[in-house]
Nucleic acid binder design. Structure first.
Length: 337
DNA sequence: GGCGCTCTTCATGCAAGAGG
DNA sequence: CCTCTTGCATGAAGAGCGCC
């Protein structure tokens, strides 16, 4: 279930999206629905672009040509709701796209038809965190937990929080998500002072290590150490001997198949050793000056990414020139090879 | 010690990139 | 173009954790 509509908000058109998860917790009835508005703001103005959910949804929707008539970004943003009489206008979706994966598998050649699986998500998110130099990775549920802690603290009823999280039993929320740290400002409450809401956040993230010098590839010293290892050397020799046998003209085709299989196993074993060695190097990497970073040196290689690097952190509305520029870049990245 | 939940590890297969 | 090699998805098993 997927409804995109446009309505007036403070004299300007605003896009709003409602999605219902098709699969959630292994059931297919009573799925939770989530609403995402285009405009999010506070006294300080809007949040940074990267945290505005409609940015990514809109880029996703437009690049997958999901709206009927396949309008451009500019046409979608120019859509205005009816003046009087009706509150909103629902943007019709392309029927054939409704079954398409919202989060498709992405390969180096662009999106694939198939859905991304939850298991691979969990792996990938952790890998992304390592890539942005958190040596310990990040669990899929860390973000969920942070959302639920803050939601629980925002004055909503427990019933609404549970519905939001699609949890049936409040003990799951209390035990597994809210954790041991409560957000009550005990001292201020007792003394009748202003209650603070920013006390626990830093402690929740205090164990997250970050190292700007985290190696993403096995350094030469690590590789040398690895090659000294007996297990690694044995593997290397067995791969070589298997390759010799495979290339031998006298080897029967059936035997060759078997040998290939053996070699593939050896490859993955070797990969596993290399990965472990890399993890070890990452864990032991001392923390150096954070300003020594390679990112700025390779940034120029993809203009879209270079612009996104600058625009995504700006605190501007989605419809601002910078917001539209970010949307265009995301669409370009998502549609190009 | 078992349970429920999640994350990590490990094995496997397939597709695509790299290299000759 | 063919073969070797790598990257990644996938899912089962294991580990860790808190609770009872």
């Amino acid at each position: 279930d997927f409804v995109l509509l446009v309505r007036w908000k403070d004299g300007e058109p605003e896009l709003r999206l409602k999605v219902r998860r098709r699969e959630c917790k292994g059931k297919d009835i009573n799925q939770p629905e989530h609403i995402m508005p285009e405009k999010i703001s506070s006294k300080l103005g809007p949040p940074p672009l990267y945290s505005q959910p409609m940015l990514f949804w809109l880029a996703n929707i437009i690049s997958s040509e999901a709206i009927k008539g396949n309008p451009t970004l500019e046409e979608v943003l120019a859509t205005t709701p009816p003046p009087i009489g009706q509150n909103h206008w629902v943007l019709q979706l392309e029927e054939s796209k409704l079954d398409q994966a919202v989060f498709p598998k992405l390969t180096s050649r662009g999106p694939k038809e198939k859905n991304r699986s939850p298991a691979s998500w969990s792996h990938q998110i952790s890998a992304w965190a390592i890539r942005v130099r958190f040596p310990d990775g990040v669990g899929l549920h860390c973000a969920r937990r942070e959302v639920l802690v803050k939601t629980n603290d925002s004055g909503y009823s427990v019933e609404q929080v549970l519905k939001f999280a699609d949890q049936q039993n409040s003990s799951v929320l209390r035990r597994n998500y809210l954790g041991t740290m409560n957000t009550v400002d005990g001292a201020a409450t007792y003394l009748g002072m202003d209650i603070r809401h920013d006390l626990t956040e830093d402690f929740r993230s205090a164990t997250m290590r970050w190292n700007s010098d985290l190696p993403l590839k096995l350094p030469a010293s690590g590789r040398a150490e690895l090659e000294q290892q007996k297990e690694y050397a044995t593997l290397k020799r067995s791969i070589e001997s298997l390759s010799l046998q495979i290339n031998d003209e006298n080897t029967l085709e059936e035997a060759r198949q078997q040998l290939r299989k053996q070699r593939n196993l050896a490859y993955s074993k070797r990969r596993w050793l290399e990965k472990n060695k890399l993890r070890e190097c990452q864990q032991n990497q001392p923390i150096n000056d954070w300003r020594r970073d390679h990112f700025l040196r390779v940034l120029h290689m993809m203009p879209e990414r270079e612009r996104l690097f600058r625009t995504l952190s700006l605190r501007v509305p989605l419809r601002s020139p910078q917001g539209i520029s970010a949307l265009r870049d995301l669409i370009a990245l998502r549609t190009s090879d």
